[in-house]
């Protein structure tokens, strides 16, 4: 699953850079052998082949997406097939709904999330998490005021569970982890997402349509 050489020339990974641990994801992608860029504007968004929504505060980022008119173009691109990976906050931002709160979300994956499900900061923890799709070695998962996935649609695949709740899910081109792979040296989830981006970009190339949009 290790990314091939020269991958950076073929695909461009973006990290939504309105607020949160953007640099940590860029650094983790660098460790996985790929360069990534911050995405702050619609023009930035149009240039990427895969988008990471990092850790941060979901109420803050939802407001900034609306104020700077980035939410709608982001929804359009992901619905057209752009691979997206949300970590912690990112999971909340792209979910269909937040349980028990009237918090707006982008509705890009059929899951209902519970915020701060494991508790407040004193309950934030490092957990050796089995993720079969990444191999036998458990993943050093870092949960910070993390959500869990309380309900998921039929087409959503659960890739890892903690205490009986899904904490890593995928539905087609959308991947969510309620923990923070970018805070560890282990790049397996970043590589997993890269393989999703490569697949999508090769598929669209084969079909003769560019997934990347021209800058408006």
């Amino acid at each position: 699953m290790a990314p091939k050489a020269g991958i950076s020339e073929r695909i461009s990974i973006g990290v939504l850079a309105l607020q949160g641990d953007v640099e940590e994801h860029i650094a983790a992608m660098r460790r996985a052998g790929v360069s990534a860029v911050g995405v702050k504007t619609r023009a930035d968004l149009a240039r990427v082949d895969g988008l990471i929504v990092p850790g941060g505060e979901s109420t803050t980022v939802m407001k900034l997406l609306a104020r700077f008119e980035l939410g709608k173009p982001l929804q359009d691109r992901v619905r057209a097939g752009l691979p997206l990976w949300g970590t912690c906050m990112g999971t909340i931002v792209v979910a269909r709904e937040v349980v028990g709160l009237e918090q707006p979300t982008l509705g890009l994956i059929d899951i209902a999330v519970r915020r701060n499900a494991f508790g407040r900061q004193n309950d934030s923890a490092e957990v050796a998490l089995p993720i079969p799709v990444l191999g036998a070695e458990p993943f050093p998962a870092i949960f910070i005021r993390a959500p869990w996935i309380e309900r998921q649609g039929r087409d959503v695949q659960s890739l890892a569970e903690r205490d009986g709740h899904s904490v890593m899910v995928r539905e087609r081109n959308v991947l969510c982890t309620s923990f923070h792979p970018e805070l560890t040296a282990d790049t397996r989830v970043h590589e997993y997402f890269l393989s999703m981006v490569l697949e999508a970009s090769e598929a669209s190339r084969a079909a003769g349509i560019g997934n990347r949009r021209d800058v408006a």
Binding site: A17, Q19, G56, N122, I144
Partner: peptide
Amino acid sequence: MTETGTITVKRGLAQMLKGGV
């Protein structure tokens, strides 16, 4: 293994606040 209060999770919350007010 579940470990709370580690340096990583403590520093980690601050990292999640970056770019914010």
